[in-house]
Simulated assay, not measured.
Amino acid sequence: MAHPRRGVRVALIAASAVVVAVLAAAWMLRPAEQPAASPSSTATPRQTLTPTPSVTPSPTRTPAGYAANTAEYEGATLPAITVFAVNPALEVDDDPYGAFTGTVVTPREESAPVFADPEGEPVGALLREYVHGGNTVPVIERQTHWVRVLLPGRKAVPSKGDPSQVTGWLRVADVEFGTIDPVVEVSISKRTIDIVRSGDRDRIADDFGWGTDQTPTPVGRTFIMKAAVVPQYSYTRGHPIVYLGVQSPTLDGFGGASVAVTAFHYHDARSGNISNGCLRVDVDAITALAKLPLGTPVIIRD
């Protein structure tokens, strides 16, 4: 359990080159499909645009939503919520095709406590800086004192529970806000990928590769966690890889790694259900996707 203390702090330890290489390997869905994020890669800048209206709180709550929590927590005592996290206390998204609010948040200090229930104690901490991204997250519900967000990591690995996109609550006082307009919409059945901005739809793909029946692409809403160029993986032909906050619905990990992250990336073979879950696209599509701000909402439909 977290212990109250002034400020929210997480001790971040700079990894050695060897450790970075080990973590980088954990990104792969397979050697020819999901490469490691590059620690030296430049993050995509956050975009500031006119926000869409906030989601109306549930009728079962007061107009302001949950009451404020002004307690202080020591972030170092809380498990970090990162792509590698498996945290049974987190909840999976109960409205996977629901709307976004047009808002993203980033921890104001070194970390922000994450709550599964705003009336309970924190179950983890979202880091402000992390080599594999996932620090800027989209808001799916906004209240006076709280925001509900999509998060990196999983509630469980597929062999032991539900690995779907996870959510959590952050205190408004602990985060910095940004507005975001684009939403990426993927239709597997139609084989289309669109970037939608203020109602205007830009079709960037009318064919792509997706997961097999045994290793399907996860569906529902998620977000862009990180974009990186990884030159050592030649199948990308030097183009960026755009990592998402959701992981495989069937793979606990891959190739000895503990994660099975879904991503958009270039591949010469990019039509039909041929991948381990990643979305394989052409040069123009991956170039457009890599330009989007971190935290950009993504909705994948069957």
Score class of each variant (00 low, 15 high):
N135I: 13
N135C: 14
Q143I: 00
H145Q: 11
T103N: 06
T136K: 10
D93C: 11
D93E: 11
T106F: 06
A89E: 08
D95T: 15
V123D: 06
F115H: 08
P88F: 07
L90A: 02
Y97E: 14
E91H: 12
A99Q: 15
T144R: 15
G98E: 09
G134W: 05
V92Y: 08
D95Y: 11
E109N: 15
T103D: 05
V92F: 13
V137C: 07
F100I: 09
V104I: 12
P88C: 10
V114Y: 06
V137L: 04
E110M: 11
A89L: 04
P118V: 00
D95R: 15
E119V: 00
A125G: 10
N135V: 13
G102K: 02
V131M: 08
V147G: 06
G133Y: 09
P138D: 07
G133S: 02
D95N: 14
V92D: 01
V123G: 01
V114E: 04
I140T: 11
A89F: 07
V147S: 10
D95S: 15
I140D: 04
Y130S: 11
W146K: 07
V105L: 13
G102S: 01
D94H: 15
R108P: 06
T101S: 15
V92L: 09
R128Q: 15
P118N: 00
D117N: 06
W146G: 01
A125L: 12
V137M: 07
T144E: 09
V131G: 08
T144K: 12
A112P: 09
G98F: 10
E109K: 14
H132R: 13
G134C: 09
A89I: 02
D93T: 03
E141P: 06
A116T: 04
A99V: 14
I140E: 03
A89R: 01
F100Y: 09
F115A: 05
H132F: 14
H145F: 14
Q143D: 10
E91S: 09
R128Y: 15
A99N: 12
A99R: 14
N135L: 09
G134R: 07
E91P: 04
N135K: 04
T136G: 00
W146F: 07
P88E: 04
P96V: 03
Q143M: 14
T144Y: 02
H145I: 03
W146L: 02
E91R: 11
N135E: 14
V139R: 07
Y97L: 10
P113S: 06
G134D: 05
V105N: 08
D94E: 14
E110C: 00
V147K: 07
V131I: 07
F100M: 05
T106C: 05
V131H: 12
V139D: 06
V131L: 13
P96M: 10
E109Q: 15
F100H: 11
G124Q: 06
T103W: 03
E141C: 12
G120C: 01
R148C: 02
G102M: 00
L90F: 04
P113D: 00
P118T: 03
V137D: 08
H132Q: 13
